[in-house]
Amino acid sequence: MVTETNTPGLRAREKAIAEQFIGGFPWIMVIWPLVNTSLWLALWPLVMTGALPLWAGFLIATVNMTAAYLPSHEAQHHIIVPEGSRWHWFNEFIGWYALIPMFAPLTVLRVTHFEHHRHTNDPLLDPDIPMAANSAWAAIGRALVKGQPRHDRYGMTLQRLGTSGAKTASLHAMLAKAVQYSMLAALAWSGHALEALLLWWLPLKIGLVYINFYLSWAPHRPMTGRGRYKDTRAFSSFFGNIGSSGMQYHIIHHLYPTIPLNRHPAAFRALRPILEERGCDLGGL
């Protein structure tokens, strides 16, 4: 078995290959949230004026929710425009705008996601560890449990960190939750209860189960492996790479977080011999 320490040449080769896939402007990750969030916002007048039936709005909103997270994930890693650029504000704009349907602050997701990278599968420190499960059905159950009052780890993670960034994120989280539920209540009590339920609340709950399943659980299952080449795996999804939000090749993201999502398949193919040599779980891909 090769290890990280006994094969410095292997690591250098791996890095040289990976660096070929870093950089460039990921147009798809800019167009995607602009279309997705704008479409979700447009559902409200379309449904309220009767131009679109509520059931159709519900189906579209559910797709919108499942697609809302990924562009923000690219922004969390400063992939759209790197830090230090005079255009970095655009990276942040895309990150925030993508998350409007989920009403989640970019700051919260960035801080907690970086903790996930630092402590992947650590039972105490990984904010995504509540998704640990041995089977797909158990993972769906975990996602439902995670959505229950005071069951997620993100607030606890922000409190533990206690940095100025974490404090700002905590404030954003509280404000977002208060504003979101005030808006839901205002909609519901002003005669739009079913629209609030079927265009926002229920699609969000369904979307979060999907996101937690494919982004938190599937690439890390059963969430016990530790170490650079063991904590994340490749896998073959029944719904394909697009249907699983590009997560089949998530191992590439954990090795090189700034490679854009749309380049993961090509990077995986290029790095495959090295990953095999490292003994990574490639899930039959």
Partner: peptide
């Protein structure tokens, strides 16, 4: 703020669940 967030499920029941049940 902590107290209000602690009441979250009850506020959700009154603010959102009640009108949704009534509308249904």
């Amino acid at each position: 703020v902590g107290f209000l967030f602690g009441l979250g499920p009850i506020l959700f029941g009154v603010g959102f669940l009640a009108p949704v049940i009534a509308a249904a």
